[in-house]
């Protein structure tokens, strides 16, 4: 087993393009060039061991693509992703490292094979990585895992359809834990669940993190959920991280105009009877993003520079922000 480093996953300048060109013949006939969708654009982050980095953003901002990049389901078009100091592609080719990262998906109805018993679903990674050999040992381990996520060992005999959404998500978590990973990518793990069940799953994930020292990359569109889970928080917009810093700091003192807009837009229990003026506009298409800062068409602070020049990440206190207005001190109002 390799030695452990302080940073579990590190991404540097990662960009991922998708080819959305029309078929070759059509392209030639109308004389059109290849077209690319820039789903993730120059994203950098590091996740220290035992902490949670949360990425939040609206649909189409590239957060799920980052999740897939982080476990090697996609390769980056450019840039570098390292797992425990090794290039991710190299780490993925070694079973000993590969088993240490795993993923929990959004839809617990689609991510469990309906024809398998729960004990086989949970045991699959154990068998695939040959962590245990005898059937008795595997059974004991599966029972232990199911108990750990709040189910009964006897539930292993059942099929997924016999469980509710929240219980299925517990099974997904048991499966993800069965290869004894230390890094989990969670892509919207509670978005398909009711709030009371969501609370159960979030509590469980936090308990497991403390008990097993897990590191999470947590993807969600729900800012309240993210606030509950995140040690560090990255806000994504059109493939870029526009603001990143310690979770509490970003929530208490949002700097980027987009972060502010998001925080203002969310309906909250504490806002009973408060009238608000929502920000207009919508997320532009990532196939044809606006020049300069991608947020400028919706931004109140946008000026000529924002329309032309893409802002670089600037450090403000503990937070990194990509915004000309913040950098020039125009944002304080």
């Amino acid at each position: 087993m390799s030695e452990t480093s302080a940073v579990v996953l590190e991404a540097t300048g990662v960009t991922r393009l998708f080819d959305v060109s029309r078929p070759w013949l059509q392209r030639v006939l109308v004389g059109e060039k290849r077209r690319h969708l820039r789903a993730v654009d120059d994203v950098s982050f590091a996740i220290p061991r035992g902490t949670t980095l949360a990425l939040v953003g609206e649909s189409g901002c590239g957060k799920s693509t980052v999740a897939r990049l982080a476990v090697g389901l996609y390769g980056p078009s450019s840039g570098d992703i390292r797992f425990e100091g090794q290039a991710l592609s190299a780490a993925r080719s070694q079973a000993a490292l590969r088993r240490r990262m795993n993923m929990i998906f959004q839809d617990p109805y689609a991510s469990l094979n309906p024809r398998w018993r729960v004990r086989d679903i949970v045991a699959e990674p154990i068998r695939a990585f040959r962590l245990l050999s005898s059937a008795a040992e595997i059974d004991a381990r599966v029972g232990e895992l199911l108990t750990q996520v709040g189910l009964a060992a006897a539930d292993g005999e059942k099929y997924p359809h016999e469980f509710s959404g929240g219980q299925r998500q517990r099974i997904s978590i048991a499966r993800a834990l069965s290869s004894e990973p230390d890094f989990l990518v969670c892509d919207e793990p509670t978005s398909a669940l009711d709030v009371s069940v969501q609370a159960q799953i979030l509590n469980l994930m936090k308990e497991l993190q403390q008990r097993l020292g897990l590191t999470y990359l947590f993807i969600s569109h729900n800012l309240a959920v993210v606030r509950h889970m995140a040690d560090r928080l990255g806000v994504m917009y059109l493939g870029r991280i526009v603001e990143m810093g310690p979770g509490e700091e970003v929530f208490r003192n949002p700097r980027h105009p987009y972060t502010r807009m998001l925080l203002e837009a969310i309906p909250d229990l504490d806002m009973v009877g408060v009238a608000r003026t929502p920000v207009g506009g919508e997320v532009p298409s990532p196939i044809n993003p606006p020049p300069g800062c991608p947020f400028h068409p919706r931004c109140k602070l946008a000026n000529d520079r924002c329309r032309v020049e893409k802002p670089a990440h600037v450090r403000v206190g503990e937070v990194e922000v990509a915004c000309h207005a913040v950098q020039e001190g125009r944002a304080e109002a």
Binding site: V195, S196, Q198, A199, L202, N222, L223, A224, V225, R227, H228, E248, F251, L263, I266, D268, L269, D270
Partner: peptide, 11 residues
């Protein structure tokens, strides 16, 4: 139900 909703204003 109200208690299980994560809040934006306090953690």
């Amino acid at each position: 139900l109200m208690g299980s909703i994560p809040s934006l204003t306090h953690r």
